[in-house]
Amino acid sequence: MDGRKYTCGLDAAMAVMGGKWKGLVLFALGEQPLRFGALRRAVPGISERILILQLKEMAASGLVHREVHEQVPPKVVYSLTPFGHSLNDALAPLGAWGEEHIEHIEHIERLP
């Protein structure tokens, strides 16, 4: 064994991604930096608590940068790091595949 934790690149990428919400947050931040409220509106269905948790994890893994502007009230802006942009770029073909097959995917999810 070569001491690596992951069995392949996809395994490592999925460890960074971890679930449904991080990809959607990456997509939302791919266009422009956003404040928390705008980011929450850009990711329908995510709760405030989950978004806070996901942003903390994404900042810790180097995907997201959190910039605090010292003013009253405090202004916090989230943006993608170069590492986050690279992951977003890698996910773009997967998103295109999903768009191409969305009707089929929705159909099979409705089956008993």
Rank of each mutant, 00 (worst) to 15 (best):
L10I: 08
R110C: 06
K5T: 02
A13C: 11
L94P: 02
S47V: 02
L91Q: 07
I105L: 14
K56S: 00
R110E: 12
G45T: 05
G23M: 13
R4Y: 06
E70D: 08
G98A: 13
L87T: 00
H104I: 05
A60T: 02
H69S: 07
P44Q: 03
R4D: 06
E99W: 11
P82G: 07
G84L: 04
L80I: 04
H65C: 03
V77L: 08
A12I: 02
D2C: 09
E67Q: 04
S79V: 00
F83W: 06
I102H: 08
L34D: 09
H65D: 06
R41S: 07
M58T: 01
T81F: 06
H107I: 03
E67A: 00
R66L: 00
T7G: 10
W21Q: 10
I102Y: 08
G62Y: 05
V68T: 00
V77N: 03
A13Q: 14
I50K: 15
R110P: 05
L111K: 15
I105G: 04
E109L: 13
M1E: 13
L91H: 08
L53H: 14
L94F: 11
A42V: 03
S47N: 06
L55G: 01
I50T: 14
G3I: 00
L94S: 10
A28Y: 11
P112A: 13
A60P: 04
F27D: 13
Q54W: 01
E31N: 14
F36E: 05
L63S: 00
L87C: 04
L51P: 05
R35K: 15
Q71N: 07
R35G: 15
G3E: 08
M14F: 13
G84A: 04
V16S: 11
A42H: 10
P112D: 14
G9N: 12
A13R: 14
D2G: 11
M58H: 06
S61N: 10
A96P: 08
K75A: 05
